[in-house]
Design a protein around this nucleic acid. Sequence first.
DNA 1: GTGAAAGCGCTAACAG
DNA 2: CTGTTAGCGCTTTCAC
Lengths: 353, 353
Amino acid sequence: MSPAQRHPTMADVADRAGVSASTVSRTLRGLPTVSPEVRARVQQAARELNFAVSRQAASLVTGKTGVVAVLVPTLNSWFMGSALSSLGPLLRAAGRELNVYVIPDMTERTSFFERLPARRNADALLVFGFDLTDDETARLDDLGMPVIYVSQHAEGRPSVYVDDVAGALKATRHLLNLGHRRIAFAPTTGATGFSFSSRERLLGYQQALTEAGIPLDDELVVTMAFEDKRGLIAGVGHLLSLREPPTALFAEQDELAVAVIHTLRQARIEVPEQMSVIGFDDHQVAEWFDLSTVAQSPSDMGRQAGELALQLIDDSEADHTRHIVLPTQLIPRATTARRASPQEDDETPQTPS
Amino acid sequence: MSPAQRHPTMADVADRAGVSASTVSRTLRGLPTVSPEVRARVQQAARELNFAVSRQAASLVTGKTGVVAVLVPTLNSWFMGSALSSLGPLLRAAGRELNVYVIPDMTERTSFFERLPARRNADALLVFGFDLTDDETARLDDLGMPVIYVSQHAEGRPSVYVDDVAGALKATRHLLNLGHRRIAFAPTTGATGFSFSSRERLLGYQQALTEAGIPLDDELVVTMAFEDKRGLIAGVGHLLSLREPPTALFAEQDELAVAVIHTLRQARIEVPEQMSVIGFDDHQVAEWFDLSTVAQSPSDMGRQAGELALQLIDDSEADHTRHIVLPTQLIPRATTARRASPQEDDETPQTPS
DNA sequence: GTGAAAGCGCTAACAG
DNA sequence: CTGTTAGCGCTTTCAC
């Protein structure tokens, strides 16, 4: 209630325990060079005074802030939420604070890279899912702390990401195996900065088709955003109105997949009877909607990135170019099915009974 | 790449600009007592050296850390994501850092309240949506900084929350106005700590029924969690198997509402034809699914809470018991409809038309 | 308008 | 094992 009252200092604890400040410091940091009795006395004094070490003062002399910073485009997404929910406790367990920089738009972004507020205020920076320019990367390079790139590959710099190409391959092959030949891909707009994954997943999709001897068709790639209902209707409409409409669709994200399914069903197109749909993520919605998908684990990603950060902080000898690539897993559920009427050519009418 | 190189200090900047450290300090803090020419010289020197003030050193003397801490049960929810996505930039604009403590389980919680790592490391603490014990609240009271309770009412302490009772009233009245008399309420389990809202919304629901002269029926209140598919099936099954099943359902959250709708449709129950469903939140899913709901704005909440925090930090004279109660808004969409067959049973015939 | 000096609370040598 | 001494990099009097 009275935030004005001053915090006790180490000197206060030292007085009360009848020792010197150094001894208090040693005790509180758990150094072994303190006799058990003194240790006990100090700890009690500290407890009684409700004493807490000031990180500011400590870091002034140690040169370490005890803070790990993360740079994120938003917090309002399944991916970021999961990743940080695992990163947070991990850092906490290592006695570190988690500092978050949310950069939702271009203005904030410019100002962040101009001022680099993390400079001198963190021991490491985790950059999540931004598609950085070379200039921006260069700025981060001389931030004076390890910078870990998460959810994106950064040449010659530590990064942690999921194997998007392989995941997209799995998704597309799954559809191919079910007999589909006309397969659409729906990437989402890169506004939130996740375009690295978009590109990679498109690549995996294309590679799978090529492997199967199916020519690529740009008409089948339609960018949509799950927040944009009208865009969804337009996108789905476009696909359905093609001379040769797709019988399956691979959406870049589960949320988009679910939105597409909803749109299809409103147009009286049955899923999976008339159109198979597969997503990517294994987002929570996937389970309730029995959505086939390719699972990735953002919480693993957060954990790995956090561990890498701690390692790079503690050991400047560590490999600063390490890449950690995380696996994906195909999870077939109820929104993908064998192509309804496996007619023997591609021109023929698409009448599913 | 070489994180080992030391950061330049104010003394370095001072040397380069040919002034004293004090002048550098004054310039960089924007104090007016610096001549334009000197100011320019200092700023250039700082830029050239890529200098950034060390918060640690500054806070050691000012006593302010420049950090606002938040305590959250998880980051993996629409509510928290939205709230922090607005809080972050707001703090940034005020030159503050955002420090996040994620407390997902009881172990972390206990350890947080025992050690209070925020002590001395932040200027204010925002506590989001925990249902705190009296002991915990007492601990926070002598943290030595303003503590703002968000998404919950805390007696005699600054808090920011939405008017859940009024919101629930609106939702329930909406259903009543559509002719429904048997209305179910589905709260979610309080594991994530959002039980304050649960309780309040239940109250609003009950109040609306009472106003309408409808006796409360415990059978109609079924706790479900949207993550738990089997629980959903059981809960929905219970409601449908009642002697007198409900014709409408009010779900505590949109995500739950959507999951219930999905479960109902799988059981071949049409929404809204056979069962009206309304949610709470105006979560993003609500729009794609045309879900009727009661809107609240977590981003407003984050913003208000942030502003309150800044105010309490800067002005210790400010009212430390202020409560900010945010409004809700009924958003009728397509999942609620007039009761289908207005049979003349029960109390009074409800015949519209 | 600017500089000199003192000191914020801690840790890191160095003695003992 | 413990105390003493010196700063860490800033901001803040107080002179000028």
